[in-house]
Design a protein around this nucleic acid. Structure first.
Lengths: 222, 222
DNA sequence: AATTCATTAAATGTTAAAAATTTTCGCAAA
DNA sequence: TTTGCGAAAATTTTTAACATTTAATGAATT
């Protein structure tokens, strides 16, 4: 047995970061919006320092962006940047599948869990619960990345701000038909992994482009 | 013309982070060593808050690691972790070369600069200047990653803490013969890129393992 | 009308000190 | 010798106040 840290101590910055993420995911905060340290600190009845630390962490996760003395904003990506993001994420996940199969003989690949994720996604779509749908979506992809059993690969993947962007994409475009298509696509991914067909997985996961013009209609600056 | 930020404002945390990196690179701080905020703050005659922010940034870059209320240490990697790190880095750089050639027709690939990096590396090796040798080494690899013209890919690459680990590997093993071999290897990489031979590059850059048992001899805890 | 320049308010960066937690160390008991 | 307890010291976390910078406003000037 590995002596893992079962219970991690939580510090204030973790709560703030979580609160911010929730606000974003609930749509209360949108890409481009400014985050004012002092205001947020007052709102949560804590000090400015804790907020600053949370902000710094979210910047590292690719969710926020900042410039000295200018303030912090929720990161916005142009359509080119968003497609670039998906390209990189796709390559990393494809690599994860390859390694999980080739390097570790699928030792860390929990097919049952992956299947349950897809099933849950379908359930959520049928019940129009797009929020939880995204959670299962993320769980699916995270499980794949972790199956590669590579700390560095997981680090690289996390630096992309997946949790955020995966949500954003759906937030702006939650047509039921598209969600259904997502489920189908994930089922295909699952099949590819289950049969250890690395090429099939790569092909499936690639070419996953959004009509980002539709996602981010041009609008005035704040 | 793109309205880029030519001059970025510097804040204290940047100076602190730089100071810490220098200390590490000079060998004054070693993997596993603890960093005490209050002591460092006194040493630099600044407040503890600024140190904390710098630490948070270096954690994101994979250089430091921390646990709530327990403090911060310079990250140590087991030999398995170090090899894993190189595996991931290698894949990302190979991908960068592929994209720089296929997606952008080598538009952002500055062959002259790459060549100058290799030449500088050779010069440093001949003059036994391993420190600057590493700088040119890093410049070489960074240029390759940037040639892919992918913001997300560069982000992922940066999250690995390359600057730090590249140095560490050499710090512990600076046999001249090994440095010479490094130059040869980089020349081979350059040739592969110059002739747009993606496979050759991938083959060359792969299998770049260190004898990490030698690099990190077992020793007692601090 | 457009531009420059002081003034001012708001936000970020920085410092310093209090509060909370962990670590250390002495000492008694098994 | 080892183990366990408790107080003191060291360190991290959190707070609160202060300093600096930016952005906006408006008067003065060209």
């Amino acid at each position: 047995m590995e002596p893992k840290n079962l219970l991690k101590r939580r510090v204030l910055r973790d709560d703030v970061a979580e609160y911010l993420m929730e606000s974003i995911l609930k749509g209360e905060l949108n890409p481009g919006d400014k985050i004012i340290e002092s205001k947020l600190a007052r709102e949560l009845s804590i000090s400015q320092g804790a907020v600053r630390e949370a902000i710094r962490d979210l910047i590292a996760q690719g969710v926020l962006e900042t410039e000295p003395y200018k303030g912090t904003r929720i990161r916005t990506l142009s359509k080119e940047q968003l497609n670039d993001y998906y390209d990189v994420r796709t390559e990393i996940e494809a690599l994860a599948v390859r390694w999980s199969i080739i390097k570790h003989q699928s030792k860390y690949l929990d097919l049952n869990f992956l299947k349950s994720c897809v099933d849950s996604m379908k359930y959520c779509v049928d019940n129009n619960d797009s929020k939880n749908m995204r959670k299962h979506d993320m769980a699916f992809h995270l499980a794949i990345v972790q199956a590669a059993h590579s700390e560095s690969l997981e680090k690289a993947w996390n630096s992309l701000g997946n949790y955020y962007w995966t949500y954003i994409a759906v937030y702006y475009d939650h047509a039921a038909s598209l969600l259904q298509a997502q489920v189908v696509k994930h089922r295909t991914m699952y099949d590819a992994i289950a049969t250890a067909d690395i090429n099939a997985y790569a092909n499936c996961v690639r070419g996953h482009y959004f009509d980002t013009n539709q996602l981010f209609p041009e609008k005035g600056n704040n």
